[in-house]
Design a protein around this nucleic acid. Structure first.
Lengths: 332, 332
DNA sequence: ATTCGTCATGTGAGCGCTAACACGGCATAG
DNA sequence: CTATGCCGTGTTAGCGCTCACATGACGAAT
């Protein structure tokens, strides 16, 4: 089994110099039509595939992007990844992916370093932890970098769905039914998104001089939502709950249904994300839709602009959308 | 801004030849301890990062794997992807990812071709459609290739969770409660997994001379499950349903709950996948757990073996596990 | 003292490609 | 009829790295 055919093989077969073949392949320099035909025939016959590694080495441009993802299969990050991949592929960029299990300085640093060695032209970090910001600061590199995270104080450009706006709108929606206050099942406190949602919820309540009930904290998992739900049942005087993501909201619904608490008659429940399942929960879940595909595209655009030297605006924000379903309603 | 430091820069700074630096970096050839120290100091000072593109070009080994994934964010494929990535990273392989929107010959061909240009040493195709097999046949390439798909007749090595076994076990589980027969909400008929689950279900019924009810067909989405659920309600005489995945099962549960059909008292419902949410459905869903992380690792091992020339066994199968929860029970 | 082997290092070529320039040939302009 | 220009093509030198070999220094064996 011989090695893959190279430019010179094609050149030899077509009876031209390798440079002419290169011109045909890249469609730049001037080539006479019949020469081009001969070359293309040779390419076809040999099944020649340009070696993009060699090209990258010669040009100094790899047309490759790196993505650092959290080692998890959450709906949001996974969707964002695919959004980025789609946008990148359409623009002729290849994607290298690396996952990290913990969002600390060392892991992120290693991941970024590994991608740089691979010669990526830019890096996206989808690791929406509070620690990620500092970790990125440490990961000193001159490769353009964009983070997918809703943070004002990140040391790198940031793209995100507007968490604050989304959380504000659900909270206001819940209050609009006349509930005395809104409880909150928050995400892990080391997540930026969790903090942003919690802060927005809190500010709506304080703005209106409404009592701020203690926060229940989960870890995004349905199980943690279930436990929070049981705690809320024990609490008794609960009329409305804003749960920081749909998976936990499912757990809350489960706990309520087991305990004979009716949604939305006894308690209104709202989530965040609009996972595909949310419309089929019992009852269908009021939630905030995040357009992760748009987020991915925007992230890619942002990074591309940075690679090409066009200075982008400081913050790229994707607006969320409140999706009202049957899990929220007037107080009984 | 100067370019990234290269081997020669380090060599110059350390006062040695580039080859000595190479030996230090790769830890092979003999180097005197103090020389090594000088070199490492220079590496540190310059912030030198080996360029793996150049290395790949020189050695002919890229240590890169390509993954072709379906353009979707389904739980299974996404988890498998992460399993592969983890295993690969541990073994020093980088991952390039490409997604395809349709599983036809052209898309798959393009995806495989693109990855080959990137110089990958092996390719995993996670595109479990019936058409994928033929598409792979067409994508003639001498790069080692493994498909994640439960098919006997694929033209390439295959790794999969044993769909047949899983489906057989749920069906038998449902029959064990004394239900006269088991209905089936199947996945799209162009998916191998959907076919395998349906075939297994059918064979259990025919083996036992049980009536085989007409198949209801969905598209994996909760919505399609919901519609199937409504159809089952209209049908009336339904005691047990095996739904081909958990998302559709959620839709079925929703339809039943809306229609006042009680699960499992009126109808037993079982799913497939064991998504993290399944335990918190109402009622918690009996389902078949697929260990996608193990699947990913096995896939990587398989591919690695193929790259290194060790001929692997014909079929790598990961066993599924029946998870019994509250959605299944005796006929009323 | 000479030969040999080993260790530590250096040299040159080449992986497959592109950028930059060099060079004939033919048309047009002077 | 020579000068100027452009077109089509070839030549050369790298990109950053590794491989295969060459070289020199030193100790041990002859």
């Amino acid at each position: 089994m011989a090695r893959q055919p190279a430019l010179t093989d094609v050149a030899a077969l077509a009876g031209v110099s390798h440079m002419t073949v290169s011109r045909v392949i890249n469609g730049n320099g001037p080539v006479r039509p019949d020469t081009r035909r001969r070359v293309l025939a040779a390419v076809e016959q040999l099944g020649y595939r340009p070696n993009s590694l060699a090209r990258a080495l010669a040009t100094g441009r790899s047309h490759r992007l790196g993505v650092v993802a959290l080692d998890s299969v959450l709906y949001g990050p996974a969707s964002t990844l695919f959004g980025i991949e789609n946008a990148a592929r359409e623009s002729g960029y290849a994607i290298s992916i690396t996952s990290v299990s913990r969002p600390d300085r060392e892991s992120i640093g290693e991941a970024v370093d590994g991608l740089c060695r691979q010669g990526v032209e830019g890096i996206v970090v989808i690791a929406p932890h509070v620690a990620t910001g500092q970790a990125l600061e440490a990961a000193a590199t001159d490769v353009p970098l964009v983070a997918v995270a809703d943070s004002d104080q990140a040391p790198v450009p940031v793209v995100a769905v507007d968490q604050h706006d989304g959380a504000r709108r659900v909270t206001e929606h819940l209050l609009s039914f006349g509930h005395p206050t809104v409880w909150h099942v928050a995400g892990p406190c080391d997540w930026l998104d969790a903090r942003a949602r919690e802060n927005a919820w809190r500010s709506v309540l304080t703005e209106r001089d409404t009592r701020v009930p203690p926060v229940l904290r989960g870890d995004w998992s349905p199980r943690s939502g279930y436990l929070a739900g049981l705690a809320l049942v024990a609490e008794g005087e609960v009329g409305a709950v804003f749960v920081a993501n749909d998976q936990m909201a499912l757990g809350v619904l489960r706990a309520f249904s087991e305990s004979g608490v009716s949604v939305p008659d006894d308690v209104s429940v709202a989530g965040f994300d609009d996972v595909p399942e949310a419309a089929y929960f019992s009852p269908p879940l009021t939630t905030v839709r995040q357009d992760f595909i748009a987020l991915g595209r925007k992230t890619f655009d942002r990074l591309l602009r940075q690679i090409e030297g066009t200075r982008p605006s400081a913050r790229s924000i994707v607006p969320p959308e409140l999706i009202v379903r049957e899990s929220t309603g007037p107080a009984r």
